[in-house]
Amino acid sequence: MSSPAVPMSPALPADWRDFLALTKPRVMTLVVFTGLCGLLAAPVHIHPVIAFTAILCIAIGAGASGALNMWYEADLDVHMKRTQNRPLPAGRMDRQSALHFGVALAVGSVLTMGLAVNLLAAAILAVSILFYVLVYTVWLKRRTPQNIVIGGAAGAFPPLIGWAAATGQISLLPVLLFALVFLWTPPHFWALSLFVRSDYAAAGVPMLPVVAGAGATRRQVFLYSLPMAAAAILPWPLGLTNILYGVASILLSGWFVLLAARVARSREADQAAMKAERALFKYSVLYLFAIFGILVADRVLLA
Rank of each mutant, 00 (worst) to 15 (best):
A164I: 05
I129K: 01
G152V: 12
P159M: 02
V107A: 07
L134K: 07
I124A: 10
F189E: 02
L160K: 02
L180E: 03
G102L: 12
S128Q: 15
V181M: 14
I148S: 08
A166D: 02
Y132S: 08
F101C: 09
I161V: 15
P89E: 11
F182T: 00
L120G: 13
G108S: 03
T144F: 07
L192R: 00
L120A: 06
A104V: 07
L176C: 05
W190T: 02
V135I: 15
L183F: 13
P89N: 04
R142P: 13
A154F: 02
L192P: 06
S97H: 11
L105S: 05
I161E: 10
A106N: 05
G155D: 09
V103E: 01
V149W: 15
G155P: 03
A116P: 08
G108I: 12
A126P: 06
I170R: 05
I161R: 12
T112R: 03
G152P: 08
T167Q: 04
Y132C: 13
A164W: 11
V127M: 15
S193R: 08
R142F: 09
A123P: 08
V107F: 13
L177D: 09
P89L: 09
S97W: 03
G91A: 09
L111I: 06
A191E: 01
G102C: 06
A165D: 04
W190M: 03
G114L: 01
I148M: 13
F189T: 01
V175M: 15
G168V: 04
A153L: 12
L111V: 13
T167A: 10
A166I: 15
G155N: 07
A106Q: 12
T144L: 09
L115H: 07
H188T: 10
L180C: 11
G114M: 11
F178H: 02
